[in-house]
Nucleic acid binder design. Structure first.
Lengths: 121, 121
DNA sequence: ACGGATACTTACCAAAAGGTGCATACTTGA
DNA sequence: TCAAGTATGCACCTTTTGGTAAGTATCCGT
């Protein structure tokens, strides 16, 4: 233990750290839906259209181990589990908002650039 | 033009779009340094410690094709090129700031979670 | 002429991320 | 009893991303 970080710069800037938490093909989407309130696994799966079980679970576990998401197992007779944002997760989502806004404003430019790379060149 | 997106949802939310632009192992760092002002290729390479030429160039090209970064070739006798943020890029960097802040505040928690995943589990 | 610097380009490889599909254990309804 | 739904786990494979190491062309100082 005691790995005191005197000059131990693990991340160059905060963004670098943050990206470690939110990168993953489905994480932004998951966060987007969880921001609306606690959601059951199955419901989440239907919302995040296109995810496979493996991926959903994997990303949820990572978010959980990062303290962003809380898994609640109701221990009920017919299996019942739901996921929600922790306060920490909620603060992350708030910090993400400006970036969401930027993305919304420039969605078309971004999409166009992506197309350019896909097609011809 | 006029590709009115009635139900054309390419991205679920703006964040989804934004992440397409800033994800890449070295992009946040590049943006971080370019935010300080135009930088020559070689200087950038020395700043972003650890990048290879291939990666630096690749990421710069993507940022350029996304309209975030501008490449300026001075066409001078000893090769001279520099990179800078476009106004569009600068607006992205501004939108990234809250996320940077969040990352800085929680750097330790994030690092701890990463360690947990690496080691033991 | 040689070494070093500038700004890249290319070929080849390894590692990480993601995807497909089958399996599990339990329950409820037909 | 059989199918369907719940929430996962696991093995295997493909795609994407990143890394290493080399080469190119031009110029400068010695």
């Amino acid at each position: 233990m005691a790995k005191e970080n005197s000059e131990n710069q693990r991340f160059i800037c905060g963004l670098h750290a943050t990206l470690h938490v939110i990168s993953g093909k489905w994480k932004p989407l998951i966060l987007f839906f969880l921001n609306k309130g606690p959601t059951r696994y199955g419901e989440l799966k239907r919302s995040v259209r296109g995810v496979s079980d493996k991926m959903l679970i994997q990303q949820l576990k990572e978010l959980e181990s990062d303290g962003i998401v809380r898994r609640t197992d109701y221990g009920e007779i017919p299996l019942r589990v739901d996921y929600s944002l922790t306060p920490f997760g909620a603060s992350l989502v708030r910090a993400m908002e400006p970036l969401c806004g930027w993305g919304e404003e420039h969605e078309e430019d971004i999409a166009a650039a992506m197309d350019r790379r896909k097609t011809g060149r």
